[in-house]
């Protein structure tokens, strides 16, 4: 069973439909006990980091998420979930986040007016190293992005894939141990995205 964390940070229907298309069962929950004992966690989200962290605290989900990640279960961050996996965000005047991976989140600083913020659309991900969630996918495959801030992990070894936008080369896919985190939306990225979700569902959390 794949547990999807619901912390009032956006619409989870497409995440459920993505796994559903693969014949995989999901459960959407905001119950701390259920999250703490999950065998496989998806941590999605859209919106602002400050509001999201407030929701996580109010729902009592910070400690269960940290505990679940520490137990070594396969853990997938998506979009805002990925940004919150890091320790700090520039958003909302600076927000302390979960700190499951060291690093921070920065805002795009466009060099030319045609670099719109947010980045909306399909961009390619160049793979820096192999990872079980990338099985069957070619480096340079395109995925769907919607974001104004991007992950900047402290350690180069946590970077799995990179993407270029608005003069920045950023970590669009990060991972360490049982944690993997995508800035793009695999659930909205067609066949490539579904392949990544399928790989995640088969992964034992080791790499």
């Amino acid at each position: 069973m794949i547990v999807i964390v619901d912390y009032k940070a956006g619409n989870l229907t497409s995440v459920q439909l993505g796994f559903g298309a693969l014949g995989l069962e999901t459960r959407v929950t905001r119950d701390p006990a259920e999250i703490a004992r999950a065998g496989r966690l998806v941590f999605p989200g859209v919106g602002a980091a400050g509001a999201a962290m407030r929701n996580l605290r109010e729902l009592g989900l910070v400690a269960p998420l940290q505990a679940a990640a520490a137990r070594g279960i396969p853990f997938l961050g998506i979009c805002l979930g990925t940004q919150i996996v890091l320790g700090r965000s520039e958003e909302d005047g600076g927000t302390e986040t979960l700190g499951l991976l060291p690093g921070q989140v920065r805002r795009f600083q466009p060099l030319v007016p045609t670099d719109k913020v947010p980045q909306i659309g399909w961009n390619s991900v160049a793979f820096r190293r192999p990872h079980p969630v990338l099985a069957g996918l070619a480096s340079g495959s395109e995925f769907y992005f919607v974001h104004s801030y991007y992950p900047a992990p402290a350690n180069e070894t946590d970077v799995i894939g990179v993407t270029e936008y608005a003069g920045a080369t950023f970590a669009s896919l990060m991972g360490r141990g049982n944690i993997v985190a995508a800035q793009f939306h695999p659930e909205k990225s067609g066949r490539m995205g579904l392949q990544l979700l399928k790989n995640f569902s088969n992964w034992d959390g080791k790499c």
Partner: peptide, 8 residues
């Protein structure tokens, strides 16, 4: 439509 396609 949402069940049929996995793009925005």
């Amino acid at each position: 439509v949402a069940r049929a396609i996995h793009i925005p």
